[in-house]
Design a protein around this nucleic acid. Structure first.
Lengths: 130, 130
DNA sequence: GAAAAGTACTATGTATGGCCAAGTACTAAG
DNA sequence: CTTAGTACTTGGCCATACATAGTACTTTTC
């Protein structure tokens, strides 16, 4: 449970959202995506991105076409499918709600003495041991 | 790769952040946390929360004391350790940066024709097949 | 007082995604 | 031909969220 690990966990799923959004803005291939993510300070390595793209493809959210490159092997240029567009739209909502929920939690200040009154379960015991 | 699954992935790590924040605001036990998370529309079940609390405890980020209850078995009331406070502070930064990075990606609009000029790698090939 | 219901915590197994690391394949430069 | 650069592929590892079942204590009900 170190910070680095939690940071990794935190962006699970978010990467998928970001990638779909990048693809939604025009044809791109993997290196384009890595560049854009890196410039936004989201570090991604190939071993993460390529499997993700494969999953998106298998799920029918994206499709690609091969384009030959002047410098190196051919590239897969990705585009969103209609299904992918719907999915992205849903992810947008999910992400916004998640941010709102988190802010609702982390925006609250210390409640040292006064707690929100509980109607059902009264926590009144003062009998503490150990 | 359905929406529900991605939603689950999206909140990995965020739960940890929320829990630490809730604990930082005063002594609470598991049911308190579930109540607060639920009211913020973050659904959590026992099978998720208890293992998480155990991890936090083992990592030295939180500690607890047993408090007898009038209605049922004794409860574990959690508090943050100094280390936990530091960790929470770091998580706050991480989360804020992640939100900013994501917004940087998802805030951009469609770039149908004009792409940000690439200095190093010019993607100019028009030679497309398949 | 025994049975049932409610509360709180524990334990096990599964699935998923991010990541490391090694490998394949193509092109251009020396 | 060898080396370097680029692009994509694959296999294995790990941590978290979750479902599910189980333990333990108290109060309620008959």
């Amino acid at each position: 449970m170190n910070l680095e690990n939690t940071q990794v966990q935190m962006r699970k799923g978010i990467l998928e959202y970001c990638i779909l959004h990048i693809i939604s803005r025009g044809e791109v291939y993997a290196s384009d995506m890595i560049d854009e993510l890196t410039s936004a300070k989201i570090m991604v390595v190939e071993g993460t991105l390529y499997p993700l793209l494969t999953r998106l493809k298998n799920a029918g959210l994206v499709e690609y076409k091969w384009v030959e490159s002047k410098s190196g092997p051919p590239r897969k240029y990705y585009t969103l499918t209609g299904e992918g567009r719907d999915f992205l739209s849903n992810l947008e909502t999910t992400w916004d709600e998640l941010i709102r929920s988190t802010r609702e939690i982390t925006g609250k200040q210390k409640n040292s003495t006064k707690r929100k009154p509980k109607t059902t379960k009264a926590v009144t015991e003062k009998n503490k041991n150990l």
